[in-house]
């Protein structure tokens, strides 16, 4: 191997050290983007399928309804953050502003949890869900003194009602 080739290879190794994080960011962006889009398509299809199923936030049963059965229905989903989104959020952490990279993530989580709740209610023979609620909680990892985020859990729950 001559001197020029050795210098060239050295240069490449040196460059890759600097470019590696950027490469990783791009790769995770494309993978994350693909997963997100596929999930959203799935959500849209299922939402269309369950559109006729009423989910409302009333706390009490409206007058005149003949309720024959009630029960707790719930759906939950845990979604993780990819490297790219976390990187954008970290930069936002320096200067402030909306963490736009997390918005589609939480949007999908909310809708997926609601869909799972609806699917639970339908499977159990209810005609609708009253007093529907959404809760979010952070899942910590063992890394960074339990301050690292493994992902978020979104829980949708409500009262399934069967009408007579």
């Amino acid at each position: 191997m001559d001197q020029d080739t050795a210098t060239w290879i050295d240069g490449c190794i040196g460059c890759s050290g600097i470019l590696w994080p950027f490469f990783l960011l791009l790769v995770t962006y494309f993978i994350g983007n693909y997963i997100e889009r596929r999930h959203l398509q799935d959500i849209l299809a299922r939402e269309a399928k369950h559109r006729s199923f009423p989910v409302v936030t009333f706390e009490t049963v409206p007058e005149g309804w003949n309720v024959t059965d009630v029960g707790l229905v719930q759906g939950s989903v845990v979604i993780s953050v990819d490297y790219f989104k976390r990187f954008l959020a970290a930069l936002r952490g320096i200067i402030g502003g909306r963490i736009k990279s997390y918005e589609p993530l939480l949007d999908r989580a909310r809708r997926e949890a609601t869909l799972r709740m609806i699917e639970d209610a339908r499977a159990r023979g209810y005609n609708g869900v009253l007093n529907a609620r959404l809760e979010t909680s952070r899942l910590a990892t063992g890394r960074a003194n339990n301050k690292g985020i493994a992902g978020v859990e979104l829980l949708a729950f409500g009262t399934g009602v069967k009408l007579g």
Partner: peptide, 12 residues
Amino acid sequence: INVSKTHPLKEA
């Protein structure tokens, strides 16, 4: 309604 329209790469 809950998602900003900015392209993630542009934001990065």
